[in-house]
């Protein structure tokens, strides 16, 4: 069996998933809802993401005042109610995208309308872990018949 490390792999070759995090601001934490022009701009932007085939999921989050934290300390759990203090480190929303490279994610993120008009705001892009053994030796097996027969059927049709 070959290992991944041996594979000659070009940078940016593989599609990857990223989480694009919209950082919270004073207004988002105060529960200020986006106005109509932002909603329209975001709607258009989301539509573009969908049409480009990169959008997998995305949502906005309520302010941390409605959130909870569960802390694990000394074998005990403790529940802490929001709001939480460090506003700029909090998350106000996220997308999950599938892109070919971090550069592509950056390019798309730059096209986002400013998510928090009137305030400084920030998007953070983080790569999502993928199972490293994803592609090894996927020889189909006898009892996996639904799948294997279908693939065989495609090959036979081609032949």
């Amino acid at each position: 069996m070959k290992t991944r490390a041996e594979a000659p792999k070009k940078k940016g070759d593989r599609l990857m998933k990223v989480m694009v995090i919209v950082k919270a601001t004073k207004n988002s934490e105060a529960g200020v809802m986006p106005d109509e022009s932002l909603l329209t701009a975001m709607g258009n932007y989301n539509e573009e993401l969908v049409k480009a085939g990169i959008m997998l999921a995305g949502d906005g989050l309520h302010p941390s005042a409605k959130g909870k934290r569960i802390q694990f300390v000394g074998g005990q759990t403790r529940v802490v109610d929001g709001p939480f203090a460090e506003t700029k480190e909090l998350v106000a929303g996220y997308w999950i995208w599938q892109v070919r490279s971090m550069e592509e994610a950056v390019e798309w993120a730059r096209r986002c309308p400013p998510p928090m008009p009137g305030e400084e705001s920030e998007l953070e892009i983080r790569r999502i872990f993928e199972p490293e053994d994803f592609g090894d030796a996927l020889t189909p097996e006898l009892r996996e018949q639904e799948e294997r027969l279908r693939a065989e059927g495609e090959r036979r049709k081609q032949a």
Binding site: K2, R4, A7, K9, D13, R14, L15, G53, I54, Q98, F134, G135, D136, A137, L138, T139, P140, E147, R148, A151, R155
Partner: peptide, 20 residues
């Protein structure tokens, strides 16, 4: 998905391209 031949490591790319 069927990955029947060669260097399997490159194949999942194709699944992802297809889904895109």
């Amino acid at each position: 998905y069927a990955a029947t031949a060669g260097d399997d490591l490159l194949r999942p790319e194709l699944c992802e391209e297809a889904m895109r």
